[in-house]
Design a binder for these strands. Sequence first.
DNA 1: GGGCATGTTCGATGATCATCAAACTTCGTG
DNA 2: CACGAAGTTTGATGATCATCGAACATGCCC
Lengths: 107, 107
Amino acid sequence: MGDTNQPELPASMPVAPVQDVLQALADPVRLEMVRRLAADDAPVRCSALYDDISKSTASHHFKVLREAGVTERIYVDGVLHQRLRRDELEEALPGVVSSVVSTLQPT
Amino acid sequence: MGDTNQPELPASMPVAPVQDVLQALADPVRLEMVRRLAADDAPVRCSALYDDISKSTASHHFKVLREAGVTERIYVDGVLHQRLRRDELEEALPGVVSSVVSTLQPT
DNA sequence: GGGCATGTTCGATGATCATCAAACTTCGTG
DNA sequence: CACGAAGTTTGATGATCATCGAACATGCCC
């Protein structure tokens, strides 16, 4: 019917308590994911968010980020993407995302 | 001579890379310590920064915070205190401390 | 429908880390 | 100087978590 053929996805979590958000960001792999998400400021294909780890590990990190309310999943042209929930995060923890994301990465 | 009889303490670390700061803050015990430090905005006696954990555990957490450049040790009247390095943190990661500290704690 | 690509879930394994008690250091005080 | 208070260090233990491969789910395309 009016079905756009986009698969249904569970509703996004609210942004979790600071503790959990910090924990989510405090992992190098996840921080890099968030950096890449922030760089585009648009939904990004999952596979573009990591290198050198297995799909299952990546999926695990997606889950952690999602359950902390940092990201959400959306379909774009039938392809799963991750989106950084900038506005919600800015409201819950003003300054944190931009600060964390804009810092130079140590070698 | 001009010696104030204050014991010497090693110089403070520079604020560590974001990764390490986040890791330091991403522990409930340490976050509570930082909250108490921020509440006073002045050096605080070590023993006033925690309850329900052993001295050795507390000392471990102090070390983590210190090595991330989040806190430093100073002597006040011959008594060891911890101080939150607000200014340095604000410069390195603007908004993070105030955001993290001012959030309501979940029960 | 069959095959392929892309993510997720599950179970197991190894590494990291929070925790503690005990021994040690250091300072202040009687 | 001996004692006590306050932190630190060390070594051990248990819990948490990042990682992987294998099996499963889902959507796309020929």
